[in-house]
Design a protein around this nucleic acid. Sequence first.
DNA 1: TCTTGACCTTCCAGTTGCTGGAGGGACTAC
DNA 2: GTAGTCCCTCCAGCAACTGGAAGGTCAAGA
Lengths: 138, 138
Amino acid sequence: MTIGEAATITGLPQKTIRYYEEIDLVRPDRGANGYRNFSRSDTHKLAFVARARSLGFSVGECRALLSLYEDDNRASADVRQLAGEHLMQIDVKIAELQAMRRTLADLVERCRGDHRPDCPILDELAAHKAAFHKEPVS
Amino acid sequence: MTIGEAATITGLPQKTIRYYEEIDLVRPDRGANGYRNFSRSDTHKLAFVARARSLGFSVGECRALLSLYEDDNRASADVRQLAGEHLMQIDVKIAELQAMRRTLADLVERCRGDHRPDCPILDELAAHKAAFHKEPVS
DNA sequence: TCTTGACCTTCCAGTTGCTGGAGGGACTAC
DNA sequence: GTAGTCCCTCCAGCAACTGGAAGGTCAAGA
């Protein structure tokens, strides 16, 4: 099938599919006219990668998952390990974002948001107010 | 002060400071020897940006915040608006990550993680198992 | 047959926010 | 003079695409 059809089926942009070929995630063969020809196995891999990406796995991790997937002698422990590490990284990111969120929400709430210039958000970012007086001699 | 000192004070890598100069966030002047010379105002701006970045603001948003900060006629409403939008984006990201987290945690828990190949994580990623039989005619 | 339009191709550049390294000048201390 | 530590610029690269230009291919219709 053509790249257009593969894109429709997998929900991936054609550009992304070409990119995945470039980095050797898939290797569709070519017709006489130079057009890519995607097998069902190709589109299946693409869909696999698309799902893994949507779970936040990096392309490198997707590659590893794909090769585990294609390895009949894999140990599920390896897959679990990979997913477990990814899960921990997600937890870290969530924690970071929640910390930002707390600070920001507090600042936004405390800002009057009117026509006047004084603003706790900028105060917080400036932090050491006292030390800042426009352009001290340098 | 030199870039090294500015880096120590702000906690930013020198490379980052040079980059911030390149994109015009700061404009330190230069000594006769070509060395950058950071004023207190420069380092203050850098620290401001560092804090804003640590709250997840993009460099573009930092630029906007900085120009609001330097505008005595600003309306705090504008600052609040900017921060509020950023807050919403953070909420979106948190929600996305939590959705991933839920799915992943469930899969990881259901995976036995032993020497055998069968694995619910790969099953989930493959999703349409039945449709995939190695290399159908294409 | 010609042409139109929808495909497909490659290649190059840009995005965000840095980071690393090469190759070289400047300054300080001994 | 020389060693060591600064500083400078420029180029390249990371992730994971995305956009666009310039051009080949193919099917359908006048």
